[in-house]
Design a binder for these strands. Structure first.
Lengths: 341, 341
DNA sequence: GCTATGATTTACAACGATAGAAACGCCGTC
DNA sequence: GACGGCGTTTCTATCGTTGTAAATCATAGC
């Protein structure tokens, strides 16, 4: 009853012949053109059902110059934050009738540049791009001839739309939360030296802002460098702190993976969390709620970011010429065991 | 120098005109047709570079009936195992010049059926399908008119290719490992009652096989039902066991998320792992190596599954008519703290 | 009964690429 | 110097759909 024979064998011509109308009428029915006599519409619809007709999207795409596919470029899906982001983006896209092509950049600078000019851009109507390595100097590379929405705050002020989480205020809230619990020696792990505009720099800025607001002196020894924000990195940062004899009573992991890695090392050293050291993360990935102890974290409004990014991108694809937007999502603090008093 | 003007404005006609040759010659150059005079090839190539020509894939797809896109249908990316699987599939696809369109089924039966007949199948050359809810009764739904590779063992023996992990032997090895550590009251969490061929049933079978091989009686009270394999489910399973007064000295989580959720509950109840209760999981997701304590798990050969699935699918897309294959990936036991003696 | 008027439907030409076959050179050969 | 043969290039049709404009039909007004 459905799909017999070779794939895509049934075309509009076949339907038109079966229904005794022209191809264009079939097209009109399929595209909900308003001026069609009900009898005609029904006749065509019946033919479509009987033949099991499916539109050839390649043909439509060729004709319309659209594919209905949007690209999503991110570092890698095995990083939980990005997996969850991709989940949200795919759902938001589906609600709007779009599908998502994911490209992983492996957090590699050249790979991030390549994605912008890849052959695949030809296959997508637009791109949602979450760079990790590109910086302000690469602004020119982002001047691309197709709709693009950039996630994150690495590159400001260019001629493109921007959707981002509130890194500074979120980090400040996380730090303030630790201060409110009586912590004073708050280490921050995963910092990126020499970075001006990345998430790392912005979150460290929020951290410093909170310290200053509470009259707590800033101690550079408490800022631990760490490249890729994997659990292993977080574990290593704490290892180094302990080996270096740094005193601390709290840790702010610049993301949850770092914080979870940190808790792993603390556990290995039999350091009680939150008794001796309180820990807070950033991103509120699903793991945070199921770690032992559960991890307090900043929830960055992932769904809002995904939905907004898609909406902004769709508006651009539709030809919108509004001024470029910069949207900052709302965040919230999820308080859990790792910072219990 | 590149991509000035409207998107995709440069066509083969433009290149042909600029190079002073016919369109077909440009096509021949682009497609590496052998009989082209070097001078011509160079002339065309220069025109391509100068104009920044990119092939219109929709047009090629229409003509060739291929898209170079493969679909990957899975429950959801926020489940770490599937995020990591998607990562592996995307990498394997990229190595072979393909891109991947991910569709989430939310572990919903109707959604899984819909994916098989979706309009989107029109956009993909083939599908890698990882069902969670479909069962043997749905075999007919899998008789689709396009290349498909099914992951997992829910539906055997149909006329399609199959790539799967070794659920039975993996589960047996996990259980044997616990038995070797002296455990006798081994609970298994996340079972699915009434399921014949799913991962749950197969892993439970492996569990029972190991018990039998060691002369340990099977106690149904130690088999805990649990629907979706999220951390929350694992936490809940253990909660119910404790509330029900079930005695146990080890837990086999049917996947890592369940096991991690279980460790969460054990921690909340101040039950020592592995001192009082040893825990082993299945899937070897990245979290397993960073939990506290680190989680022993079965590594199911994810990369091998991804690469094999793509290879088998590509062979089908290319028109291969070999008998349908059933590939079972190799597994290995990753021993970590949660089962230390 | 005939013409506006608007609703329906159709014919035709694209969209940008590739397949197949025909056409064009150029070479050596008889 | 005409003729094959082969490497190279061009011509033409076509993939399945939609935009445009024109054709057809129906209804109402006079």
């Amino acid at each position: 009853m459905n799909g017999s024979g070779a794939r895509g064998a049934v075309t509009m011509h076949d339907v038109a012949a079966a229904a005794g109308v022209s191809v264009k009428t079939v097209s009109n029915v399929v595209n909900d053109y308003p001026h069609i006599r009900p009898a005609t519409r029904e006749k065509v619809q019946r033919a479509i059902d009987e033949l099991g007709y499916r539109m050839n999207l390649s043909a439509r795409n060729l004709r319309q110059g659209r594919t209905g596919i949007i690209g999503l470029a991110l570092p890698e899906l095995s990083l939980p934050y990005f997996a969850e982001l991709a989940d949200s983006v795919i759902r938001a896209a589906e609600d709007r009738g779009l599908v998502v092509l994911i490209e992983q950049t492996s957090a590699d600078r050249q790979h991030e540049l390549d994605v912008l000019t890849s052959e695949r851009r030809q296959l997508t109507d637009g791109l949602i791009f979450s760079p990790l390595e590109l910086g302000p100097d690469d602004a020119d590379a982002l001047k691309v001839p197709y709709p693009i929405v950039v996630l994150g705050e690495r590159i400001f002020g260019g001629d493109w739309d921007h959707v981002t989480m509130n890194n500074v205020d979120g980090a400040r809230a996380a730090t303030q939360h630790l201060i409110d619990r009586g912590r004073r020696r708050i280490a921050v792990i995963g910092a990126h030296a020499g970075e001006a505009m990345g998430s790392a720099a912005l979150r460290v800025l929020g951290y410093q802002t909170a310290l200053a607001a509470n009259g707590i002196p800033f101690d550079p020894d408490l800022v631990i460098e760490g490249g890729l924000w994997h659990r292993a990195t977080g574990a290593d940062c704490v290892e180094r702190m302990i080996a270096g004899g740094v005193e601390f009573d709290a840790i702010f992991g610049l993301n949850d993976a770092l914080a979870l890695g940190a808790m792993h090392t603390l556990h290995a050293h039999r350091i009680d969390v939150p008794g001796s050291v309180a820990v807070v993360g950033f991103d509120d990935i699903e793991d945070a709620a199921y770690a032992s102890p559960t991890l307090t974290s900043i929830s960055p409004g992932r769904e809002q970011i995904a939905a907004t990014a898609i909406d902004v991108l769709m508006a651009r694809i539709a030809g919108g010429t509004d001024p470029f937007r910069r949207v900052i999502a709302d965040f919230s603090l999820k308080e859990r065991e790792s910072t219990a008093s």
